[in-house]
Write a protein that binds this DNA or RNA. Structure first.
Ligand SMILES: NC(=O)c1ccc[n+]([C@@H]2O[C@H](COP(=O)([O-])OP(=O)(O)OC[C@H]3O[C@@H](n4cnc5c(N)ncnc54)[C@H](O)[C@@H]3O)[C@@H](O)[C@H]2O)c1
Ligand SMILES: NC(=O)c1ccc[n+]([C@@H]2O[C@H](COP(=O)([O-])OP(=O)(O)OC[C@H]3O[C@@H](n4cnc5c(N)ncnc54)[C@H](O)[C@@H]3O)[C@@H](O)[C@H]2O)c1
Lengths: 260, 260
DNA sequence: CCGACTTTGTGCATACGTTCACAAGCGGTA
DNA sequence: TACCGCTTGTGAACGTATGCACAAAGTCGG
């Protein structure tokens, strides 16, 4: 790593009583860095990873920040900064080795280990998720399905048997589920969430349009399609408003310049 | 509106030659404000709206920022700031009138008008979306479905007939589609997107794991479940790293205090 | 009508994220 | 080896978002 402040890899022998203000840099910093990656950058790293995997399949071995940024739909400076959080694995004047980059991003994202997924609520959405081949191939095997409906339990969906929600604790423990996906009706979501948490699941992906309450140590991400659509709707409205402003501008509100 | 700088609701007659530095506030500002709402705030407004609608159904007529913030899972100061972008419709010492707030948020989000949705790609996910009742009830009627598979076209899904993708332009125009949802395999997504744009659709919600290229005036939002899971995975890994640091800390790296 | 109490709305400080711009570093070439 | 052109990696400037803390503005009981 280039512009590091201190000098050399100062071993952990640490000076005795440095009560001075500027804190010394330690081993902790190496770990600390992972924590220092902005959430927004993490989301983009996942996108870069997908693009890079595609590149690798097409036989591309090296890629410049400019190219990768184009393919990922971001500014190249941002891309380089994002990659700098991961470490410095590029070659100046050349670019990045695709394989190397893939493996380092995978390491940072914790994809060196598989994360088993459990889907709760095997209705419209749950069926789609269970049948989807895109998760296992990316390191997220769907290890268990749950529903409360007795007509569904026992029947396999996408090759995986559906368990009754009451068995959630034992099955999750047995299959080492680390991610729980909630696809139940909103009324049931909080209760399901609580059961997942009790079962030791610390990561939850929630499709139900409710705000889940969880302990601090549990990470929740939500996918709310109605919210997405409302954001789109907002932009439509905003655009209409701007058009209206332009009209007013054209008509000319006396003397008042809108954008000089 | 409370803390407004100027005085009274200065009508649009605009003072003659105020070339002074502090720019006068005009009609444009009212419109301007909509544009000034941070994207993050817009997403939260949609959540507040959902919570408020639920409250209204339960007969709640008034709510304080503290209560609403709790229900929406955010800090109350943030909530109040978000609402201040919409305008000042609360009553100090009392709180917000639920109905009033709902209607103002709806106005800002452009929900006073319906936004017809077209879903393209009626596979696993497309079926789930077409069958989902949550969209029409929130002002987003599903007006058309499209697929390339001749076996699917003509057959109704969720009460809506599936059209062939080749009819996309005429059908979208006829049904005044304003939001296009892409649920096709990734390989087809860019082509489908281009067709939607040609058909005049300016808002796109993309489920395919690809980065879409669109003209500036088109708004795209993506839902990428694998990315969501990878973000969760990152947090798991980060947590494991922190635990490792704590162990090192416990063992005691001589003299170096990690967090004093 | 007053004064105690509650809750909003926002100025300000801080933290976070993005973008610019350029020195540092590398491969290739003479 | 010395130079050149290209691309990375990162300080620093900027812009945006968050959260605190408190004055302003309202309600309500007496
Ligand atoms: N279908 C979509 O396209 C879509 C889109 C956006 C959001 N959502 C949300 O996703 C969730 C699921 O949607 P859906 O269309 O699949 O609903 P659905 O009604 O088709 O399926 C829900 C399933 O959950 C099961 N269930 C109910 N209570 C349960 C409990 N306590 N424990 C376990 N399982 C339980 C039901 O038996 C049913 O099989 C809903 O919250 C919905 O709002 C769905
Ligand atoms: N199913 C899921 O749970 C899930 C989860 C995450 C992401 N996705 C993504 O969503 C998309 C759809 O997933 P799916 O599981 O429904 O796939 P699917 O294969 O079940 O369905 C795809 C549908 O698109 C149609 N199609 C193909 N090319 C088309 C074209 N050019 N024009 C119109 N229609 C066309 C096909 O006929 C098919 O009906 C994929 O990109 C997938 O990666 C799905």
């Amino acid at each position: 790593m280039a512009g590091r402040r201190g000098e050399g890899d100062e071993v952990v022998t640490a000076s005795p009583k440095k009560t001075a203000e500027p804190p010394a840099e330690t081993v902790a910093d190496v770990r600390e860095r992972a924590r220092a990656i902005p959430e927004a950058a993490v989301a983009r790293l996942a996108v870069y990873l997908r693009v890079l995997s595609g590149m690798a399949e097409q036989g591309v071995t090296t890629i410049s920040s400019e190219e990768l940024a184009g393919a990922a739909g971001v500014n190249s400076a941002k891309l380089r900064k994002d990659l700098s959080y991961v470490g410095s694995y590029g070659t100046r004047g050349v670019g990045y080795d695709v394989e190397v980059l893939v493996s380092h991003i995978e390491r940072i994202l914790g994809l060196t280990r598989k994360h088993s997924v459990a889907v709760v609520g095997i209705g419209n959405l749950g069926h789609a998720l269970a049948n989807y081949g895109g998760f296992p191939s990316r390191g997220f095997p769907v290890a268990a399905l749950f529903d409360i409906d007795p007509d569904l339990t026992g029947v396999p969906v996408g090759g995986i048997p559906v368990h009754h929600i009451d068995d959630i604790t034992s099955v999750c423990a047995e299959r080492e589920v680390s991610i729980g996906v909630i696809a139940t009706p909103p009324q049931a979501a909080q209760a399901v969430c609580d059961r997942l948490v009790s079962a030791g699941v610390q990561c939850i992906l929630n499709f139900a349009p409710v705000v889940l309450q969880v302990p601090d140590y549990v990470e929740v991400r939500k996918v709310d399609l109605a919210v997405e659509m409302q954001i789109l709707s907002f932009h439509v409205a905003r655009r209409a408003d701007e058009a209206a402003v332009d009209v007013v501008n054209g008509v000319g509100v006396d003397g008042v310049v809108i954008r000089p």
